[in-house]
Design a protein around this nucleic acid. Structure first.
Lengths: 212, 212
DNA sequence: ACCTGAACACCGTTCAAGT
DNA sequence: ACCTGAACACCGTTCAAGT
């Protein structure tokens, strides 16, 4: 309940306190939500005094920033893993599914990473969005290089915010439980996600009609 | 800095403390963000003691819930106002624009309403999502009754989560500053939003190709 | 019924002091 | 350099007491 067991009696005079704090912060977030995140609590869980974290982070914001940075790595990996060995439109679908998988597997962490008020609050360096967007850059790159027939350049441009907000929005609404697959006749979450993404891509692949 | 001026010396022994607290809570959120939201601060701003709010709300969560409920009214009105006098697809676009307009006009409030960790944290009654979704029900109703040629029923069904997460995601990414209209060659935010929504609707209106 | 003031257990942060 | 313990100004919440 209080110790984490993996230390052999020493008291972090080794330089691993920083990593231990980040790990325990993530553990706490995933177990009890962002609201439960307190520096004192993390210090307690890590077995150090309340003031110890200040030897490694100037403020709570900076610890959270570090947590976000760690999270973005997992996020990017999830997208990459899900998209590898795929090509063209399938690659795009893979990225989207990797995105949503991460969000569903780490809802609190995803939320922390993706919302401002927590991380505006949180982002001391101001670089979290930039880092977070790395994942999206993969999507952007794929969108740009994937040949969408019948699209002009400037039309294709608009697909970027479209795809981005689509995936981002779906992730959040699924996490929040506002959209449930059952409502739309899907018993399986994965199948629902695939269907929605497929539909999005099919829609986007159509040539634009000249009116009507 | 401390008083709000609209009271005539009396000390809220009238039954308007509840409304004053909600109003000042919203004022505080919009001025300093959700992070600054504290019961004691609101009480101070309203000119009452720290314990006074507990005569009207069992806990901080309940005050926030009341704030969310108030917010959903504005949200619904914004969508309705923006869509009135429009028909068919234009009506849908109006709803979407009303949604995004509200999010941009009241970012902190929108964020409070739409994110769980704050309002899971916040929603004592558990009914906030339900109420919040009222706005989306308009969208759903419109999507269902708007004739989209070439779509079967079950195909049309999928447009609901698609449109919903599209608008929701775009709202959030615009608020967070992650998507900027300038990136896509728009100097005007409104024009950008209209273009994206139009594109979404045009995409969705296409008949599905039978493969390829 | 509605509000106040003092109290309790928390929190982020600072700072002198220890090793 | 890294950590502790005590302190400060906050916070949510409770509770006896006032009107």
């Amino acid at each position: 309940m209080s110790a984490n067991g993996e230390q052999h009696g020493s008291r972090y005079h080794h330089g691993n306190l920083r990593e231990a704090l980040i790990a325990n912060a993530i553990k706490l977030i995933e177990a009890e939500g962002v609201a439960a995140l307190s520096l004192r609590r993390i210090a307690r869980d890590t077995g150090v005094s309340q003031a110890a974290p200040y030897s490694h982070f100037p403020s709570k914001k900076d610890l959270i920033t570090a947590v976000c940075i760690e999270g973005t790595k997992w996020f990017g990996e999830s997208m990459r893993r899900s998209a590898e060995d795929r090509h063209g439109v399938d690659y795009l679908a893979g990225l989207a599914i990797g995105h949503i998988n991460f969000a569903l597997a780490h809802p609190a962490l995803f939320h922390l990473m993706s919302t401002r008020d927590v991380s505006e609050a949180a982002d001391a360096t101001g670089k979290v969005p930039e880092i977070f967007d790395e994942g999206y850059q993969m999507m952007v790159a794929a969108l740009v290089r994937t040949p969408l027939p019948h699209f002009g350049i400037e039309q294709q441009q608009l697909n970027i915010p479209l795809a981005w907000s689509q995936v981002y929005g779906l992730s959040n609404l699924l996490i929040e439980g506002r959209i449930t697959p059952q409502t739309y006749g899907f018993s399986d979450l994965e199948a629902f996600v695939v269907a929605v993404i497929d539909r999005f891509l099919q829609n986007s692949l159509q040539p634009l009609s000249d009116s009507k």
